[in-house]
Design a protein around this nucleic acid. Structure first.
Lengths: 235, 235
DNA sequence: GTTCGTTGACGAACACTGTTCTACGTGCGA
DNA sequence: TCGCACGTAGAACAGTGTTCGTCAACGAAC
């Protein structure tokens, strides 16, 4: 049937783009790219669809909802985790710290993943291997079963919380100078407090505002957790 | 000048409601009420405005933006915190645990506050008193200055992360039965894993899925942190 | 006593968000 | 070749935070 001549010629020509079809894989690829480049808040169904040259509704044929997509992003990020060979019972504490550092490394490399990960147990294969690895280390350290089980929950919780905090600052577009300025203001604020009611806070003002940006704070945290866990070992 | 008769009579008569004027105080009151009753996601500028019988734009005369309001909510919640008398050097570890329990209690009583608190240092008076109190305990425990300073960052981070996790489940409208069902599924999932690649995960499946809802998990965390901190004490 | 300037209130609108409805075109099995 | 089912999307819905421009009310000044 030839189109009536008074119709607008070429009605936008949808052409049914012969591109490669949409897949979960491609959607996660695109979302991952957006998140790494522009932060978690930049990942919206519309942005992903636009990036793939389609409309937002198309995505829902492959992904149930945004939450499921978040979960997929966490699993994808977990793929980047390196898991070492085997446990050395004499060095289990150092190996445990290394595992936590590795978790933080991956989360830092994928800004926004922490926000997606908090409160969700990642169940991808690589994430499970990481869990298995940490459990191996804890058993090497002679921890009771229940302690090991709760520890394998505590450890990602702490690392994720640290990464999430960092990502909040990062997402606000804070440069390192901004953080430094903010910390400076915080220090003068602590110093300005009445010394009779807040004696220790005032006295420790320099310590309270040091290491906010570097890794020292994280190293302190994993040292405390590791030492605390070690104290629970069966003899 | 009398109005022209063809104009609409009585143009809605705004009457300039003689209610009590809008204040920061009243806005925070309303937001707090909404958050406690319906969770964090129910707190929007529109809902608050509606609750106060006005439009959303009016709020911006008293509050810079949503983020500032979040901060105000955190400060308001911190007001509910009980801070005991004075430190007993022989019982500093138990007192520290009590302080953490008190923080969690307040966060649980104000669902959603955790989400607003994460990544923001609360600087209200009561929050600062809490910081001072924890520092007092840590100094009573003979910790080095820098360790005490980082610990006073680590402790709220952990408690907030726990409360945040809980609030995520709570906000999804999960009943206790829902959580139990989910944990059950998780257990069967762990059990179904190939035992050759995930031996410990499979073996510990019961332990891994126990205590997800109760306080045991939290008690474990504060025990680990307290023990870890104690191991850093100067002799 | 009347004007003026400032201030707070607020309806409407902007640019977004996640999600759903529904129509449409294409490819595949019968 | 027909029919059907599935993937593709445009449009729309119900929200969100935030801003613009207007309008009424109040205190100060002339």
């Amino acid at each position: 049937m030839t189109p009536s001549p008074w119709q607008p010629i070429s009605p936008a020509k949808p052409v049914r783009t012969p591109k490669e079809p949409l897949t979960r894989e491609r959607i996660v690829d695109s979302a991952m790219r957006l998140m790494v480049d522009h932060g978690y808040d930049a990942v919206s169904m519309r942005k992903i669809a636009q990036d793939l040259g389609t409309g937002p509704a198309s995505l829902y044929a492959h992904v149930a909802n945004k939450k499921e997509l978040d979960q997929l992003l966490v699993d994808r990020a977990a793929e980047q985790m390196n898991i070492p060979g085997h446990a050395d019972p004499d060095r289990w504490q150092e190996q445990l710290k290394d595992a936590m550092r590795e978790m933080l490394r991956v989360m830092r490399a994928n800004p926004g993943v922490a926000r997606a990960a908090i409160g969700n147990v990642p169940l991808g294969e690589r994430a499970l291997l990481s869990t298995e690895w940490i459990l191996t280390l804890l058993k090497a350290g002679n921890l009771p079963d229940q302690a090991a089980a709760w520890a394998v929950d505590l450890i990602p919780l702490y690392v994720t919380a640290i990464a999430f905090e960092e990502s909040v600052q990062g997402a606000s577009g804070w440069s390192e100078a901004d953080v430094e300025r903010y910390v400076g203001e915080l220090r003068t604020f602590f110093n300005s407090l009445p010394a009779d009611r807040f004696p220790i806070t005032v006295a420790l003002a320099p310590a309270l505002t040091s290491g906010a940006t570097g890794d020292e704070r994280f190293e302190f945290g994993i040292a405390v957790i590791t030492a605390g866990l070690a104290s629970l070992a069966k003899k």
